[in-house]
Design a protein around this nucleic acid. Structure first.
Lengths: 175, 175
DNA sequence: TACCTTTCTTAAGGTATCTTATTTTTTACC
DNA sequence: GGTAAAAAATAAGATACCTTAAGAAAGGTA
């Protein structure tokens, strides 16, 4: 990715919204410091988290960013952040890149795709307790760092229910 | 993708297993005629469908195929099929491709990623009835073509429950 | 046509997860 | 350090979805 020029490094406070559901994504966000989330709010006001982006992760609505259609997610800081903004014009004209960069991009998409497919399988076939365990193994640092309700919105249960999962797991491991 | 050479076109009967969960994927499968499914069977014997591949779709376990690790899915014909096998050696050495081909591959990964992310959002936030409606809109031809139990395994409910969804939807639309 | 097999439907009872409400704990701020 | 606000824990009752089992419909084959 080294030959993609980075437009600007900006700082944000916790809780700022960088992209709103329904708007068109102008930027990809590369996190230098802090953590972002991409999420939807459904018609009964409940939040569902698509992705977390801690340090060195990249986040956007790929469909909106690439095809200039309305975004299906919002993106928001969940800690104070320093973030590189990568503009659409830097990114969309993939043909103008060096081949090496295109290979990097293809590999990045492929790895993201593998990760997304694993998540689909988990949502289809794993219990919520198992999805929580998977989360703690995949993101050991985030388990400590994120509030419970965000983890619940990521694995697909209510905060109350995740609280119960934790209690039952603690009881089990007592002996 | 035009400069990827195609190894061979093979024919299969309905119900043949092309890749078994746990084995390493040697091929990508490009469907000329018929339909494939990729799926897992969980520890209580229940089937969960990752993807359908009707005509012109490509299917494999991308992680297994790319990184030579055990596959997390099985792939099986659900109709009589004609299928192009694309071998790993044709595909994995992405650096040796023309740039144009690499751009095609990147775009294909990107589009798959967008589709997978939509499915994750659906699994997180939509009711099973809404996921069924989404399925009928995304794959109108498959709704008629596939048995109910496969659609149920794709949207993440039991066949009995999907049968109930259909009944309630029919009743609703009566007036 | 008749038979066998698979698919689909229906229904009763069970489990997982949600909703709502209340209490306790933690965090943020003056 | 004290107070307000947010987050987490707990619990009771409601709903979505599953399990099991049985019967009805549809498809394939002799």
């Amino acid at each position: 990715m080294k030959s993609i020029k980075i437009n600007s490094l900006k700082t944000y406070k916790k809780g700022e919204i960088l992209l709103k559901q329904g708007e068109t994504a102008k930027y990809g966000y590369l996190v230098k410091k802090g953590c972002l989330k991409s999420y939807t709010v459904d018609n009964v006001g409940k939040e569902h988290i698509m992705q977390f982006a801690p340090e060195n992760w990249m986040i956007s609505d790929l469909d909106s960013f690439t095809n200039q259609v309305p975004s299906s997610v919002s993106i928001e800081t969940i800690e104070d952040c320093e973030i590189f903004l990568i503009s659409k014009s830097d990114f969309i004209d993939i043909d103008s890149f060096d081949k090496e960069v295109v290979v990097d991009i293809a590999n990045k998409f492929r790895n993201n795709l593998i990760a997304s497919n694993k998540r689909i399988l988990g949502l289809l076939s794993a219990t919520s307790e198992q999805r929580y365990i998977d989360f703690t193994e995949t993101y050991p640092t985030l388990v400590q760092r994120l509030p419970l309700k965000l983890i619940a919105a990521y694995i697909g249960v209510t905060p109350e229910y995740l609280s119960g999962i934790r209690r039952r797991m603690a009881k089990k491991s007592e002996h």
